[in-house]
Design a protein around this nucleic acid. Sequence first.
DNA 1: TTGTAGGCGTTATCAA
DNA 2: TTGATAACGCCTACAA
Lengths: 342, 342
Amino acid sequence: MPEKVTIATVARHAQVSRQTVSNVLNSPHLVREETRERVRDAIATLGYRVSQAARQMRTGRSKLLAARIEPTRDGINGSVLDRFLHGLTETAEAAGYRVLLYTAGDRAAEIAAYDDLLGAYDLDGFVLTGTDHGDVRTAWLAERGVPFVTFGRPWDSPERHPWVDVDGAAGAAQATRHLIGAGHRRIAFVGWPAGSGVGDDRRSGWLAALREADLPYADELDRRTVDGITEGAAVTRDLLALAEPPTALVCASDSLAIGALQAARTYPPNGRDLAVTGFDDTPVAQAIGLTSVSQPLGQAAARCIELLTALLDGDVSGGPRAAGQPPSQVLLRPSLVIRQPA
Amino acid sequence: MPEKVTIATVARHAQVSRQTVSNVLNSPHLVREETRERVRDAIATLGYRVSQAARQMRTGRSKLLAARIEPTRDGINGSVLDRFLHGLTETAEAAGYRVLLYTAGDRAAEIAAYDDLLGAYDLDGFVLTGTDHGDVRTAWLAERGVPFVTFGRPWDSPERHPWVDVDGAAGAAQATRHLIGAGHRRIAFVGWPAGSGVGDDRRSGWLAALREADLPYADELDRRTVDGITEGAAVTRDLLALAEPPTALVCASDSLAIGALQAARTYPPNGRDLAVTGFDDTPVAQAIGLTSVSQPLGQAAARCIELLTALLDGDVSGGPRAAGQPPSQVLLRPSLVIRQPA
DNA sequence: TTGTAGGCGTTATCAA
DNA sequence: TTGATAACGCCTACAA
C-alpha cells in the first residue's frame, strides 16, 4: 500500500524544507528557480496533490461551490438546468473549483441546506437559479456575507448582487419579428400568469415587436396560463375559436408551444395551420422541428463562475463584501433557432 | 461578526471537555445521559456543526461522493442522467453524503479526474454511469481499492463489483408483447451496432418475445444503427421499402423512435401507419405521445447509494475490499408507458 | 532564499 | 465516565 504523499514527502525527496514546498505552491516567486524546478519534479514524480481539507483548515477556503439540482418538474424544461449544470461544472473545474449538488423542496429547505453546507463543508459560494420576486434566499445569504451569484435577475428588490441572465424580451421579440417577417399579422402570446418575472419579461418582447411593426395590440391575443402541454393546448383551442383567430403564436416555453401545436393539428374538423414558436430550445423542440428561442446556457454558466470567483478572490476574509467594487451584472442575448415542423 | 463555533465552544458552554463533546457526537453510549443532554442542548443553542474538513483530517473520510455529469449528447437521452443525478443527490443527502460533480471528455480524462478528486478532496466513493465492454475505469478504481458502484452492468469482464442496472431485455420484451397484443405480426427491431452491451441486451428482449409468440425471426427486420433521430428515420424508410414491410417497430431509444415516426408520417405518398415504441421514456416521448419503456431512475439511484454506503461502512480503512462479503448486484425491472400518439 | 514553530478543528489513545 | 495530549496536512508568521 503506497504511503500517503504529503508536503513532507515532497520536501524530503527534493531535499528542502516543507516550507519551501509550500512556497513553490503558493508563492513561487519567492523560491530560486533551481530549487523550484527540483521541487516541481518531486511533486510530479511522487504524484503529490495538496489536500484541500488541510489547506481549508488553515485558509478557511474550501474551493467548493454549490448548485441546486431540481426535481425534473415538467420534464421538458428540465434539460435546461441540466445543460447549465454541465457548463457550471466545466468552468468551475478550469477555475480550480468543484461543484457540490444539493436538493431542496422549497425555499425554507433551501436555506436549511445553505446552513448545512456552510457549516459542514464551509462552501466558498453559491450559484442560485430561478430567482423570483422577493427571493428570501438572496437576503439570507447577503445577510451573512456569503458570496453568491444568481442565474436570473432579481426581479423586484433593489438588492444588488452579481447576476447573469438571458434577455427574454429580446428573445421573444426575435421570435415575433420572425413571424411578422413570414407574413403573419395576428400573432398571439401565450405566457405565464402576470407576476412571474421571467414570463412578464418575455411578454414585453412580444409587445415591443408588435409595436415596432405597427401591429395593433389585442387583449384577446394576450394569454396567460400555468406552464404545461395540456394548458398550452387549452389556451390554443380557445384562441382558435375566436371570431378572428390568430395565425401565429409566440409561447413562453416549449411545453406551451407543444400543446399549441397539438391543439392546432387536431382542431376540428381537419386541423388548423398555425405557426408556433417556443422558448428554451429544449430537446423536444429539436425533435419535433419547433422554432424556439435558444439560451446560451454554457456561456451563462461560465459568466456565473467568473463573477463568483471574482467575488471570492476579492473577498478572502469571508466577511461582508467590500463596498468598494460594485457587483457585476451580465445580460446575455438569446438566439432564435428556426426550424421546419417535421 | 459571530465567533466560529467549534467543539471547544460547545465544551465550554456545556462545562465539559472537548473530548466529551466528541463522544456525544460519535459514541453517545459512552456518555452519561445527563451530560449527553447538556451537550446536546449546547450544540443546539449554539448552532454547532462539525467541520467536515477537520473531521476528515483525522478520520480520512470526507463524506463526499462523485458523479459525472455528461455533456448533453443527444439532448433527448440527456434527461435520463439528469433524473438519475437528482435521485442520487437526494438519497445521498439522507445518508449523510454529498455529491460532487465532475466532467470528462473521455475515459482517460475521467481517470485523471478520479486521481484529482481522490488526491485533493479525498472522496469516499464513486458512482459510474454508462459502462461498456472492457471498461478501464473500473479496473483503475478496483486496483486502488477505491469504493465504487456502477449504474450499468459490467458487460464482459468478470470483474466483480457492486452494480445496479435496469433489465433492458425485459423492457424490450414488454414493448414487443404490447405490439403483439395489438395484433402486429411483423415487428422490426431498430437498435445500436452489435457490441454495445445495452443495445444487445434490449435486442435480446425483442427476440425472446417473438419466440415466445411463435413469430418467425427475419434478418431483414433486425436493424442496427448509430443513435439519433435522422438515423432512426433512415432505417425506417429502408424498412418501409421492403416487399413485406413491418407494421411495428421496437426501438432501442426514444431518439430512434422519433426518427421512425417522422419517417413513417412522411413516407410517400401519404404516410404510412406504423406502431412504434421507444426506450427511456424521455420528456420527448411524453410530449409526442410515444409509448416507451420507462426506467426507474430514482430507485436505481437510491440502490446505488445504498450499495456504496454499505461498502463504505464495511471498509473504513479505505484499503482493498474485504474478501468476505460478495458485492451486491441489483437488476431493476422497467415498465412500459403506453401512450396514444397526439 | 530557506528553515522553524505553532495552530486550524477534530478524533484516537491513554490516563485519571 | 471524563479529561489531557498528540496528530492529521497545511500555511502564516518569524527567524536565520
